[in-house]
Design a protein around this nucleic acid. Structure first.
Lengths: 200, 200
DNA sequence: ACATTTGCTGACCATTTGGTCAAACCATTT
DNA sequence: AAATGGTTTGACCAAATGGTCAGCAAATGT
């Protein structure tokens, strides 16, 4: 199925690691080659340029995020359970992808988003789902854009900013991870409660 | 009072702009010189090295953040008003500093935090303030670490991630700014409500 | 008027870095 | 065994980049 050779896989894995930690400007082709255990010339044999390789990595991670954002299957599950499950999955997802990399690169070069804008849906399914539920009268009135942003912020930022939070709260790495174990459920509680109560 | 010459001010301003948008690796000494309207040689005349100039900029912004985090004057104002006012001020503050720059550079080189750890307070005043209020029985039981992280996340992330939120919600730049006008108050409402209700 | 310090710069340097290329290597085919 | 075609690399190149330095110019001191 996968049309990638062993070398290509190694390169992409190495490139991902280096780009995500160093950013485009900070990444070095030699470092990627070393990490992949091949020569720099081989790197250029498979991927013409740094720009080329970067786009490959960026697009892949970006696609993952976009897919997640637009994933919201409209089955019969009750919205509370659905939301809680989504938040837990969202959190796990965020821990394994470098969102900081994406945000940082977009900040450096906003065109990275402009090029993608065409492909993506105009409005996150999450928002329309809850707006519909609201119209049917199954839920108090809330601005679902706010709920959407709240959910993303509460899930993403504690991961993005983990190091600084560890410092300002006095927790060490282990404490913080422990602390984060139950965190998604607290977020779910808060949002479910806010939705039930209504948020304007 | 200010012991900086006109040239030094221009350089620092230019360096801040360039470092914050491009990061350390992406920043070019020539670009900083151009932005400041002087020669590259003059840049090195005032600040020995890129590293040196970077530290100056980073430390300044970092200090601003650390000061804000530890700012929580324990006056007689009611905690609800105090919290709401703080959130509004926090939000304005975040809009004028590049938090993404700080987080990105820390991610690239965690030592930047390790060196600072000594100077900073072990625990944010915010947390102890509300923990005390709780003990006196003026408030339901909540994990104040959670409240602390909630507040930071809800304020910072919508600014950090503005571009992607604009895309996934279908708002343009103007709409989003409009939307953000009342946002701090919604955050305050949510947190005050959560604290009154109790959060575990 | 002369000397000295200070601010500033063009020209230059050493190193780094993305990228190229001819040649070697290796598995498969003929 | 020779030819073939894909893979890999050391050696090399040109441009970019952080940094240096002798010297100029303008203020400042004597």
């Amino acid at each position: 199925m996968s049309e990638l050779t062993e070398s290509e896989k190694k390169i992409l894995e190495a490139a991902k690691k280096v780009f995500e930690t160093q950013g485009y400007s900070g990444a070095r082709m030699q470092q990627i080659a070393d990490e992949a255990g091949i020569s720099k010339a081989s790197l250029h044999y498979y991927f013409r340029s740094k720009e080329n390789l970067f786009e490959r990595i960026f697009d892949e991670t970006m696609s993952d995020f976009m897919e997640l954002v637009s994933t919201w299957n409209d089955d019969s599950e009750h919205w509370e359970d659905k939301l809680r499950r989504f938040i837990c999955e969202f959190f796990v997802f965020l821990k394994t992808r470098s969102l900081l990399f994406i945000i940082g690169e977009i900040n450096r070069n906003p065109d990275l988003l402009v090029n993608r804008r065409k492909k993506s849906k105009p409005k996150a399914k999450f928002i329309t789902y809850f707006e519909n539920l609201q119209e049917v009268g199954k839920m108090k009135t809330s601005n679902m854009y706010v709920v959407y942003i709240f959910m993303h912020s509460l899930c993403a930022y504690p991961i993005l900013n983990a190091r600084m939070f560890q410092m300002t709260t006095g927790m060490n790495n282990h404490d913080y991870e422990q602390f984060m174990n139950n965190y998604p459920n607290i977020v779910a509680d808060l949002l479910i409660n806010a939705l039930k109560r209504g948020l304007n």
